[in-house]
């Protein structure tokens, strides 16, 4: 089922997640993320796909009482990023994230993109300028904002803000980028822009995306995982999932009989 030349960039092994109130949100999830491929997580709302995605950069650490179990291995150094000894900040510096709703900081466009570098202690103006330009180009936003870099980021349109957030995540050369329903708050044109952008990005890095939109998953992803009630029902190449899934539940969901 998996092409031979694929390299595993990250992998969850028997991963379980519990919220502070005791909810067992994810049950024994095993999913590989292949290097320079887009993996999509689909499933009805509440199935745990966002919860799973947010585990990859330890977002759940922000709220007390949440508990991880099992492993998420990050290669090439074979680090279990859930390990208590591994610093969440280190994980987040390697794996960046784009959120459901654009969440730019109340700063200039320039400072938004430079933020990740500043957090890393980078203050060299020329270095920052180069990186900001590169990231904005990478997020195909450069042409629209190059003359207004000192403007407040809030003044951008929703689609531009989301691309800004992608540039922000891109500027630090992450190994993996997580997208949590990145187009759900955007109009169709902005959505197309972002989808094209992701296809461009996968030339350089590994992508995991949560989407509520099955067409989107079918359009852009190489692999798809179908989740339901906190369980991984099926994982396979996207073409197979959408044309010839092996599980009945997956088929029902894909064909719209359920959900």
């Amino acid at each position: 089922m998996v092409k031979k030349q694929e390299i595993i960039k990250a992998e969850s092994r028997n991963f379980n997640f519990f919220y502070a109130d005791g909810t067992h949100a994810l049950k024994d999830i095993n999913v590989p993320l292949y290097e320079k491929r887009i993996t999509a997580l689909i499933g009805p709302s509440g199935c745990g796909k966002s919860t799973f995605l947010r585990s990859f950069n330890r977002m759940h650490d922000l709220y007390p009482g949440n508990k991880y179990q099992g492993k998420i291995i990050l290669n090439p150094d074979d680090t279990n990023i859930l390990d208590k000894k591994v610093d969440a900040i280190e994980v987040r510096m390697r794996i960046s994230m784009v959120f459901q709703k654009p969440n730019p900081f109340p700063k200039s466009i320039y400072e938004n993109v430079a933020y990740g570098l500043r957090v890393r202690g980078e203050n060299n103006k020329r270095m920052l300028d180069d990186k900001v330009e590169e990231a904005l180009k990478g997020a195909s936003l450069w042409n629209e904002v190059k003359d207004r870099l000192p403007d407040l980021a809030f003044n951008l349109s929703g689609g531009q803000q989301q691309r800004l957030c992608i540039a922000r995540a891109l500027a630090t050369d992450p190994e993996i980028m997580l997208f949590d329903e990145p187009t759900s708050a955007l109009d169709p044109i902005a959505t197309v822009n972002i989808e094209e952008l992701m296809s461009e990005l996968k030339k350089k890095l590994t992508i995991l995306i949560v989407t509520h939109n099955m067409q989107q998953a079918a359009r852009i992803s190489d692999y798809t995982a179908y989740m339901y009630l906190g369980k991984m029902i099926e994982f396979d190449e996207t073409d197979i999932i959408f044309t010839n899934p092996s599980k009945k539940e997956t088929e029902d969901y894909i064909t719209g009989k359920f959900g």
């Binding site: 977002m59 900040i89 280190e90 960046s96 709703k101 969440n103 730019p104 900081f105 109340p106 890393r120």
Partner: peptide, 24 residues
């Protein structure tokens, strides 16, 4: 969401507090 944006970039608490929350 704004704090999450900052933490997701690998910022520490102090960095998030001073350069994102306080300006906001």
């Amino acid at each position: 969401a704004m704090r999450e944006g900052s933490y997701a970039m690998g910022a520490t608490r102090f960095q998030t507090a001073v350069s994102v929350v306080m300006p906001a």
